[in-house]
Protein backbone atom coordinates (compact mmCIF):
# COMPACT_ATOMS: atom_id res chain seq x y z
CA UNK A 1 0.00 0.00 0.00
CA UNK A 2 1.28 3.40 -0.89
CA UNK A 3 0.11 6.21 1.34
CA UNK A 4 0.02 9.72 -0.09
CA UNK A 5 0.98 12.79 1.94
CA UNK A 6 -2.70 13.58 2.46
CA UNK A 7 -3.38 10.07 3.73
CA UNK A 8 -4.94 8.31 0.77
CA UNK A 9 -4.07 4.62 0.51
CA UNK A 10 -3.31 3.36 -2.96
CA UNK A 11 -3.52 -0.35 -3.69
CA UNK A 12 -0.60 -1.56 -5.75
CA UNK A 13 -0.51 -4.57 -8.08
CA UNK A 14 2.89 -5.14 -9.58
CA UNK A 15 2.05 -6.70 -12.93
CA UNK A 16 5.47 -8.11 -13.71
CA UNK A 17 7.75 -9.84 -11.22
CA UNK A 18 10.13 -12.80 -11.30
CA UNK A 19 11.86 -15.12 -8.91
CA UNK A 20 14.54 -16.26 -11.30
CA UNK A 21 17.61 -18.41 -11.14
CA UNK A 22 20.27 -17.14 -13.54
CA UNK A 23 23.17 -18.32 -11.37
CA UNK A 24 26.25 -19.91 -12.94
CA UNK A 25 25.27 -23.26 -11.38
CA UNK A 26 22.03 -23.19 -13.36
CA UNK A 27 23.49 -21.97 -16.64
CA UNK A 28 23.58 -24.52 -19.43
CA UNK A 29 25.88 -22.62 -21.74
CA UNK A 30 27.37 -19.22 -22.58
CA UNK A 31 23.97 -17.94 -23.65
CA UNK A 32 22.68 -18.43 -20.11
CA UNK A 33 25.52 -16.29 -18.78
CA UNK A 34 25.02 -13.66 -21.47
CA UNK A 35 21.28 -13.54 -20.86
CA UNK A 36 21.49 -12.70 -17.17
CA UNK A 37 24.42 -10.35 -17.84
CA UNK A 38 22.30 -8.46 -20.33
CA UNK A 39 19.57 -8.14 -17.69
CA UNK A 40 22.22 -6.90 -15.32
CA UNK A 41 23.28 -4.22 -17.81
CA UNK A 42 19.68 -3.01 -17.96
CA UNK A 43 19.57 -3.05 -14.18
CA UNK A 44 22.68 -0.96 -13.65
CA UNK A 45 22.02 1.30 -16.61
CA UNK A 46 18.59 2.49 -15.48
CA UNK A 47 18.58 2.10 -11.66
CA UNK A 48 19.47 4.87 -9.22
CA UNK A 49 23.00 4.15 -8.03
CA UNK A 50 22.01 3.25 -4.46
CA UNK A 51 19.69 0.56 -5.82
CA UNK A 52 22.27 -1.34 -7.86
CA UNK A 53 22.87 -4.89 -6.63
CA UNK A 54 26.13 -6.81 -6.79
CA UNK A 55 26.24 -9.13 -9.80
CA UNK A 56 26.12 -12.29 -7.67
CA UNK A 57 22.97 -11.30 -5.86
CA UNK A 58 21.36 -10.31 -9.14
CA UNK A 59 21.82 -13.73 -10.72
CA UNK A 60 19.93 -15.43 -7.86
CA UNK A 61 18.20 -13.91 -4.84
CA UNK A 62 16.42 -15.61 -1.99
CA UNK A 63 12.83 -15.68 -0.80
CA UNK A 64 13.37 -13.21 2.05
CA UNK A 65 14.82 -10.66 -0.36
CA UNK A 66 11.93 -11.13 -2.76
CA UNK A 67 9.22 -10.77 -0.09
CA UNK A 68 10.97 -7.84 1.56
CA UNK A 69 11.61 -5.86 -1.62
CA UNK A 70 8.07 -6.21 -2.92
CA UNK A 71 5.72 -6.34 0.05
CA UNK A 72 7.58 -5.01 3.08
CA UNK A 73 9.63 -2.27 1.54
CA UNK A 74 8.21 -1.76 -1.93
CA UNK A 75 4.55 -0.73 -1.32
CA UNK A 76 3.34 -3.69 -3.40
CA UNK A 77 0.13 -5.37 -2.21
CA UNK A 78 -0.08 -8.05 -4.84
CA UNK A 79 2.25 -9.17 -7.61
CA UNK A 80 1.94 -11.25 -10.74
CA UNK A 81 4.65 -13.71 -11.74
CA UNK A 82 5.56 -13.57 -15.41
CA UNK A 83 7.91 -16.50 -15.82
CA UNK A 84 9.99 -17.37 -18.84
CA UNK A 85 11.46 -20.85 -19.10
CA UNK A 86 14.50 -20.31 -21.33
CA UNK A 87 15.11 -24.04 -21.36
CA UNK A 88 17.84 -23.77 -23.99
CA UNK A 89 19.93 -21.57 -21.70
CA UNK A 90 19.29 -22.97 -18.22
CA UNK A 91 19.19 -26.42 -16.59
CA UNK A 92 16.20 -25.68 -14.39
CA UNK A 93 13.75 -23.14 -15.92
CA UNK A 94 14.92 -19.53 -15.48
CA UNK A 95 11.42 -18.66 -14.31
CA UNK A 96 10.07 -21.73 -12.55
CA UNK A 97 6.32 -22.22 -12.31
CA UNK A 98 6.54 -24.84 -9.54
CA UNK A 99 8.89 -22.70 -7.44
CA UNK A 100 6.59 -19.74 -7.90
CA UNK A 101 3.64 -21.82 -6.78
CA UNK A 102 5.39 -22.66 -3.51
CA UNK A 103 5.54 -18.92 -2.74
CA UNK A 104 1.94 -18.41 -3.81
CA UNK A 105 0.87 -21.11 -1.34
CA UNK A 106 3.05 -19.78 1.43
CA UNK A 107 1.78 -16.17 1.14
CA UNK A 108 -1.93 -16.54 0.37
CA UNK A 109 -3.49 -13.73 -1.64
CA UNK A 110 -0.20 -11.97 -2.34
CA UNK A 111 0.88 -13.57 -5.57
CA UNK A 112 -0.65 -14.60 -8.88
CA UNK A 113 1.28 -17.20 -10.83
CA UNK A 114 1.16 -17.13 -14.58
CA UNK A 115 2.46 -19.91 -16.76
CA UNK A 116 4.04 -20.00 -20.18
CA UNK A 117 3.97 -22.16 -23.27
CA UNK A 118 5.82 -22.56 -26.50
CA UNK A 119 3.70 -23.42 -29.55
CA UNK A 120 6.68 -25.20 -31.07
CA UNK A 121 6.16 -27.95 -28.45
CA UNK A 122 3.16 -29.13 -30.45
CA UNK A 123 0.69 -31.59 -28.92
CA UNK A 124 2.93 -32.36 -25.98
CA UNK A 125 2.96 -28.71 -24.98
CA UNK A 126 -0.80 -28.48 -25.32
CA UNK A 127 -1.17 -31.32 -22.85
CA UNK A 128 1.23 -29.62 -20.45
CA UNK A 129 -0.71 -26.36 -20.75
CA UNK A 130 -3.88 -28.20 -19.82
CA UNK A 131 -2.19 -29.85 -16.86
CA UNK A 132 -0.68 -26.58 -15.64
CA UNK A 133 -3.97 -24.76 -16.03
CA UNK A 134 -5.53 -27.24 -13.62
CA UNK A 135 -2.63 -27.59 -11.19
CA UNK A 136 -1.85 -23.90 -10.95
CA UNK A 137 -5.28 -22.39 -11.72
CA UNK A 138 -3.72 -20.25 -14.40
CA UNK A 139 -5.34 -16.96 -15.29
CA UNK A 140 -2.52 -15.73 -17.43
CA UNK A 141 0.35 -16.76 -19.65
CA UNK A 142 3.65 -15.09 -20.42
CA UNK A 143 4.91 -15.53 -23.94
CA UNK A 144 8.35 -14.89 -25.24
CA UNK A 145 8.01 -14.99 -28.98
CA UNK A 146 11.75 -14.67 -29.43
CA UNK A 147 12.70 -17.60 -27.24
CA UNK A 148 15.19 -19.97 -28.82
CA UNK A 149 13.97 -23.47 -29.43
CA UNK A 150 16.34 -25.84 -31.16
CA UNK A 151 16.99 -24.39 -34.60
CA UNK A 152 14.18 -21.89 -34.34
CA UNK A 153 14.87 -18.48 -32.88
CA UNK A 154 11.34 -17.19 -32.63
CA UNK A 155 7.70 -17.59 -33.60
CA UNK A 156 4.65 -15.44 -34.23
CA UNK A 157 1.26 -15.39 -32.52
CA UNK A 158 -0.28 -15.72 -35.97
CA UNK A 159 1.41 -19.10 -36.57
CA UNK A 160 -1.15 -21.93 -36.79
CA UNK A 161 0.21 -23.71 -33.70
CA UNK A 162 0.15 -20.49 -31.68
CA UNK A 163 -3.48 -20.05 -32.65
CA UNK A 164 -4.24 -23.55 -31.39
CA UNK A 165 -2.61 -22.76 -28.07
CA UNK A 166 -4.56 -19.52 -27.76
CA UNK A 167 -7.78 -21.40 -28.47
CA UNK A 168 -6.85 -23.76 -25.63
CA UNK A 169 -6.25 -20.78 -23.32
CA UNK A 170 -9.73 -19.50 -24.07
CA UNK A 171 -11.22 -22.91 -23.34
CA UNK A 172 -9.20 -23.28 -20.10
CA UNK A 173 -10.20 -19.85 -18.80
CA UNK A 174 -6.75 -18.34 -19.24
CA UNK A 175 -7.75 -14.84 -20.26
CA UNK A 176 -4.61 -12.77 -19.97
CA UNK A 177 -1.91 -13.25 -22.57
CA UNK A 178 1.23 -11.28 -21.71
CA UNK A 179 3.49 -11.01 -24.70
CA UNK A 180 7.07 -9.91 -24.32
CA UNK A 181 7.64 -7.38 -27.06
CA UNK A 182 10.60 -5.49 -25.85
CA UNK A 183 14.31 -5.20 -25.85
CA UNK A 184 16.95 -7.69 -24.68
CA UNK A 185 16.88 -10.76 -26.86
CA UNK A 186 16.20 -10.03 -30.45
CA UNK A 187 15.45 -12.64 -32.99
CA UNK A 188 17.03 -13.62 -36.21
CA UNK A 189 13.84 -13.41 -38.09
CA UNK A 190 12.54 -10.24 -39.71
CA UNK A 191 11.44 -9.96 -36.32
CA UNK A 192 9.64 -11.96 -33.73
CA UNK A 193 9.34 -8.73 -31.75
CA UNK A 194 7.36 -7.12 -34.52
CA UNK A 195 4.02 -6.34 -32.88
CA UNK A 196 1.90 -6.99 -35.97
CA UNK A 197 1.19 -10.57 -34.87
CA UNK A 198 -0.48 -9.22 -31.71
CA UNK A 199 -2.89 -7.38 -33.98
CA UNK A 200 -3.82 -10.64 -35.73
CA UNK A 201 -4.20 -12.57 -32.48
CA UNK A 202 -6.22 -9.81 -30.78
CA UNK A 203 -8.65 -9.75 -33.69
CA UNK A 204 -8.91 -13.53 -33.81
CA UNK A 205 -9.48 -13.82 -30.04
CA UNK A 206 -11.57 -10.85 -28.91
CA UNK A 207 -12.28 -12.55 -25.56
CA UNK A 208 -8.61 -12.77 -24.61
CA UNK A 209 -6.66 -9.80 -23.28
CA UNK A 210 -3.27 -9.17 -24.82
CA UNK A 211 -0.89 -7.29 -22.59
CA UNK A 212 2.10 -6.16 -24.59
CA UNK A 213 4.95 -6.07 -22.11
CA UNK A 214 7.50 -3.29 -22.37
CA UNK A 215 4.94 -1.43 -24.51
CA UNK A 216 6.53 -2.83 -27.60
CA UNK A 217 9.75 -0.89 -27.10
CA UNK A 218 11.54 -0.63 -29.43
CA UNK A 219 8.42 -0.66 -31.59
CA UNK A 220 6.43 1.84 -29.61
CA UNK A 221 4.74 3.58 -32.50
CA UNK A 222 3.65 0.36 -34.17
CA UNK A 223 2.29 -0.81 -30.85
CA UNK A 224 0.29 2.39 -30.30
CA UNK A 225 -1.28 2.15 -33.73
CA UNK A 226 -2.37 -1.42 -33.08
CA UNK A 227 -3.69 -0.54 -29.63
CA UNK A 228 -5.90 2.20 -31.05
CA UNK A 229 -7.64 -0.42 -33.18
CA UNK A 230 -7.91 -3.35 -30.78
CA UNK A 231 -9.82 -2.78 -27.54
CA UNK A 232 -8.36 -5.95 -25.98
CA UNK A 233 -4.73 -4.83 -26.28
CA UNK A 234 -3.06 -3.47 -23.13
CA UNK A 235 0.26 -1.82 -22.36
CA UNK A 236 2.59 -3.34 -19.77
CA UNK A 237 4.93 -0.63 -18.54
CA UNK A 238 7.84 -2.83 -17.40
CA UNK A 239 11.16 -1.34 -18.64
CA UNK A 240 9.43 1.87 -19.77
CA UNK A 241 8.78 2.63 -16.06
CA UNK A 242 12.46 2.61 -15.36
CA UNK A 243 13.12 5.57 -17.66
CA UNK A 244 11.55 7.70 -14.94
CA UNK A 245 14.89 7.99 -13.18
CA UNK A 246 17.52 8.43 -15.88
CA UNK A 247 15.33 9.96 -18.59
CA UNK A 248 12.27 11.48 -16.93
CA UNK A 249 11.40 13.54 -19.96
CA UNK A 250 11.32 10.47 -22.15
CA UNK A 251 9.22 8.70 -19.59
CA UNK A 252 6.82 11.65 -19.73
CA UNK A 253 6.67 11.45 -23.50
CA UNK A 254 6.12 7.70 -23.51
CA UNK A 255 3.37 7.75 -20.90
CA UNK A 256 1.64 10.70 -22.53
CA UNK A 257 1.71 8.99 -25.92
CA UNK A 258 0.18 5.87 -24.36
CA UNK A 259 -2.51 7.97 -22.72
CA UNK A 260 -3.15 9.74 -25.99
CA UNK A 261 -3.26 6.75 -28.34
CA UNK A 262 -4.78 4.23 -25.93
CA UNK A 263 -6.49 5.30 -22.72
CA UNK A 264 -5.91 5.26 -18.97
CA UNK A 265 -7.79 1.97 -18.52
CA UNK A 266 -5.35 -0.11 -20.53
CA UNK A 267 -1.96 0.67 -18.97
CA UNK A 268 -0.42 -1.60 -16.31
CA UNK A 269 2.45 -0.94 -13.94
CA UNK A 270 5.20 -3.57 -13.69
CA UNK A 271 8.52 -3.27 -11.91
CA UNK A 272 10.03 -6.21 -13.80
CA UNK A 273 11.55 -7.15 -10.44
CA UNK A 274 14.41 -7.98 -9.94
CA UNK A 275 15.46 -5.84 -12.87
CA UNK A 276 14.22 -2.86 -10.90
CA UNK A 277 12.89 -2.35 -7.38
CA UNK A 278 9.26 -1.32 -6.96
CA UNK A 279 10.02 1.04 -4.06
CA UNK A 280 11.86 3.66 -6.04
CA UNK A 281 9.76 3.16 -9.17
CA UNK A 282 6.50 3.74 -7.29
CA UNK A 283 7.80 6.69 -5.27
CA UNK A 284 9.02 8.42 -8.38
CA UNK A 285 5.85 7.61 -10.30
CA UNK A 286 3.58 8.93 -7.55
CA UNK A 287 5.59 12.16 -7.42
CA UNK A 288 5.78 12.49 -11.17
CA UNK A 289 4.11 15.27 -13.09
CA UNK A 290 4.05 15.70 -16.83
CA UNK A 291 6.05 18.70 -18.01
CA UNK A 292 3.64 21.42 -19.06
CA UNK A 293 4.71 21.52 -22.70
CA UNK A 294 4.19 17.77 -23.11
CA UNK A 295 0.82 17.90 -21.37
CA UNK A 296 -0.20 20.74 -23.68
CA UNK A 297 1.03 19.08 -26.83
CA UNK A 298 -0.67 15.74 -26.16
CA UNK A 299 -3.63 17.11 -24.23
CA UNK A 300 -3.45 14.35 -21.61
CA UNK A 301 -3.27 14.49 -17.82
CA UNK A 302 -1.49 12.15 -15.42
CA UNK A 303 -3.68 12.73 -12.39
CA UNK A 304 -3.76 10.71 -9.15
CA UNK A 305 -6.86 8.92 -10.45
CA UNK A 306 -4.98 7.88 -13.57
CA UNK A 307 -2.00 6.76 -11.50
CA UNK A 308 -4.26 4.62 -9.31
CA UNK A 309 -5.58 2.86 -12.36
CA UNK A 310 -2.11 2.20 -13.72
CA UNK A 311 -0.74 1.05 -10.36
CA UNK A 312 -3.49 -1.41 -9.54
CA UNK A 313 -7.05 -0.92 -10.68
CA UNK A 314 -6.45 -1.94 -14.29
CA UNK A 315 -4.64 -5.16 -13.34
CA UNK A 316 -7.34 -5.89 -10.74
CA UNK A 317 -9.96 -5.79 -13.47
CA UNK A 318 -8.02 -8.18 -15.71
CA UNK A 319 -7.39 -10.64 -12.89
CA UNK A 320 -10.76 -10.43 -11.18
CA UNK A 321 -9.31 -8.94 -8.00
CA UNK A 322 -11.74 -7.16 -5.67
CA UNK A 323 -9.50 -4.45 -4.24
CA UNK A 324 -11.65 -3.70 -1.19
CA UNK A 325 -11.85 -7.39 -0.24
CA UNK A 326 -8.14 -7.94 -0.91
CA UNK A 327 -7.24 -4.96 1.28
CA UNK A 328 -9.17 -6.48 4.16
CA UNK A 329 -7.66 -9.91 3.74
CA UNK A 330 -4.08 -8.78 3.30
CA UNK A 331 -4.15 -6.41 6.27
CA UNK A 332 -4.40 -9.50 8.47
CA UNK A 333 -1.62 -11.61 6.97
CA UNK A 334 1.88 -12.30 8.31
CA UNK A 335 3.52 -9.80 5.98
CA UNK A 336 1.22 -7.01 7.14
CA UNK A 337 1.77 -7.96 10.79
CA UNK A 338 5.54 -7.91 10.35
CA UNK A 339 5.32 -4.56 8.62
CA UNK A 340 3.23 -3.12 11.46
CA UNK A 341 5.69 -4.40 14.04
CA UNK A 342 8.61 -3.01 12.11
CA UNK A 343 7.17 0.27 11.92
Amino acid sequence: MYKTADGEEIFIIDGHVAFWDGSPANQKNRHGAEFIDCFYDYHRNLSPEEWIWPHDKFTKYNEETFIHDLFEDGYVDMAIFQPVGLHDFYKEPFGNVAKNQALIDKYPGRLVGNGYFDPRDGDEGLERLEEWAKTYHLQGIKLYTAEWHGDSKGYKLSDPWAQRYLASCLRLGIRNIHVHKGPTIKPLNIDAFDVADVDDAASAFPDLNFIVEHVGLPRLEEFCWIATQEANVYAGLAVANAFIHTRPRYFAQIISELLYWMDEDRILFGSDYALWQPKWLIEKFMNFELPEDIAQETGVRLTREVKKKILGENAARLYGIDIAAAKGQLSQDAIARNARQAG
Binding site: C38, P183, P218, E221, F243, T246, I254
Partner: peptide, 19 residues
Protein backbone atom coordinates in the same frame (compact mmCIF):
# COMPACT_ATOMS: atom_id res chain seq x y z
CA UNK B 1 5.63 9.01 -32.10
CA UNK B 2 8.03 7.59 -34.70
CA UNK B 3 10.70 9.99 -33.51
CA UNK B 4 10.10 9.27 -29.83
CA UNK B 5 10.49 5.56 -30.50
CA UNK B 6 13.76 6.14 -32.28
CA UNK B 7 15.12 8.37 -29.53
CA UNK B 8 14.09 5.89 -26.84
CA UNK B 9 16.00 3.19 -28.69
CA UNK B 10 19.00 5.45 -28.80
CA UNK B 11 18.91 6.01 -25.04
CA UNK B 12 18.65 2.30 -24.39
CA UNK B 13 21.43 1.44 -26.82
CA UNK B 14 23.83 4.10 -25.62
CA UNK B 15 23.20 3.34 -21.97
CA UNK B 16 23.72 -0.38 -22.46
CA UNK B 17 26.86 0.09 -24.52
CA UNK B 18 28.25 2.33 -21.82
CA UNK B 19 27.68 -0.13 -18.98
Amino acid sequence: LITLNMESNQHICQGLLQV
